[in-house]
Amino acid sequence: MADVARLAGVSSQTVSRVSNGHPMVSEETRRRVLSAMKELNYRPNSAARALKSGKFRTLGVVLFTLATTGNVRTLEAISVSAADAGYGITLLPVSTPTSTGVRGAVTVLGEQVVDGMIVIMEVRLLDAAISLPPHTHVVVADSDAGDRYSVVDTDQSGGARAAVRHLLDLGHRSVAHVAGPAESFAAQRRAEAWRQTLVEAGRPVPPVLSGDWSAASGYEAGLALAADPDCTAVFAANDQMALGVLRALHERGRRVPEDVSVVGFDDIADSASFFPPLTTVHQDFGEIGRLCVDGVLRQIRNETAERGTTLVPTRLVVRASTGPPPPA
């Protein structure tokens, strides 16, 4: 910096101001300093700047798995939004989805040079969230932290209700459900909304069939549903399990949608190419990622950010996998 100052004929403080984009520098002086920086191939020392300011322009991201479509798409949006704001991300996947595993990951991340933290919780582990230091800038996705932290989540209940109402409006007497893992917060919300919608409509509530988000688990559930002649409509908690249900119904000679209607949840890129194209609930993973970054940056900048949950709306995408029930 001293070399740049000598070449530009200014003080080191002026060089610092130019490096930091300070407005109180004349354009002529700024041009001289920038020209000197270019000639000397000078680059500001970001590490020194971070140590001085206490800001490292890095966000930490804790998540359980990269195997799900939602997590990958949310993480992509987080990285792009962070980069647009001049931040990088430090990713810390948790190999063991337990309170101990999350607590350990948060401890490790706390030792890193990060300004804030985004926690993408695939399962509900509120005890782990409680272990976060109170002064930490945190936004939680896909979970429920009450009023302890800011939360960004898809409107799980609204999406599930729309799926079930769509099938009931088509004339189906009831709707079977292939749920996600019991420990998943999203799966619990979708299953509860499915149940409540049927109860409010005065319809019978069939036993829940549980899967693990995979097409293979949907296939196993689909075999059981295909053997039930009273089953004319199925709501699967995600598109991959819906794909497995479609395969099982096809193998057992149950036509979709003539005999059985199927609805998924997620609206993954391939769902329009299923056979038949899948009716599903669209959720905006990109918006979730963007809102997570916006929320944590507002906390870092000490802007007002109320704790609580921000719900991202869903919408039902109707395709060829749903129709009226077969004639009695």
Rank of each mutant, 00 (worst) to 15 (best):
residue 1 M to L: 15
residue 3 D to S: 06
residue 3 D to M: 01
residue 4 V to I: 10
residue 9 G to C: 01
residue 13 Q to K: 15
residue 14 T to L: 12
residue 15 V to Q: 02
residue 19 S to C: 14
residue 31 R to V: 13
residue 31 R to M: 02
residue 37 M to N: 00
residue 41 N to M: 01
residue 41 N to D: 13
residue 42 Y to V: 03
residue 47 A to V: 07
residue 48 A to N: 11
residue 53 S to P: 06
residue 58 T to M: 14
residue 69 T to M: 00
residue 80 V to H: 09
residue 85 A to E: 09
residue 87 Y to V: 08
residue 89 I to N: 08
residue 91 L to P: 05
residue 92 L to N: 04
residue 94 V to S: 04
residue 116 G to H: 04
residue 127 D to I: 04
residue 133 P to S: 11
residue 135 H to I: 00
residue 135 H to S: 08
residue 148 R to C: 00
residue 150 S to I: 12
residue 153 D to E: 11
residue 161 R to G: 05
residue 164 V to Q: 05
residue 170 L to T: 15
residue 177 H to V: 07
residue 179 A to Y: 08
residue 180 G to R: 08
residue 181 P to C: 06
residue 189 R to H: 02
residue 189 R to E: 14
residue 189 R to M: 07
residue 197 T to D: 06
residue 198 L to C: 14
residue 203 R to E: 09
residue 206 P to S: 11
residue 210 S to E: 14
residue 215 A to G: 11
residue 222 G to H: 02
residue 226 A to C: 11
residue 237 A to C: 06
residue 238 N to T: 05
residue 246 L to G: 04
residue 246 L to K: 13
residue 249 L to R: 05
residue 254 R to A: 12
residue 255 R to Q: 10
residue 259 D to S: 09
residue 260 V to A: 02
residue 273 S to P: 01
residue 276 P to V: 13
residue 278 L to H: 15
residue 280 T to I: 12
residue 281 V to A: 09
residue 281 V to N: 10
residue 284 D to R: 15
residue 284 D to I: 14
residue 298 R to A: 15
residue 298 R to G: 05
residue 303 E to W: 00
residue 304 T to K: 03
residue 311 L to K: 08
residue 315 R to D: 11
residue 320 A to N: 09
residue 324 P to E: 03
residue 326 P to A: 15
residue 327 P to Q: 03
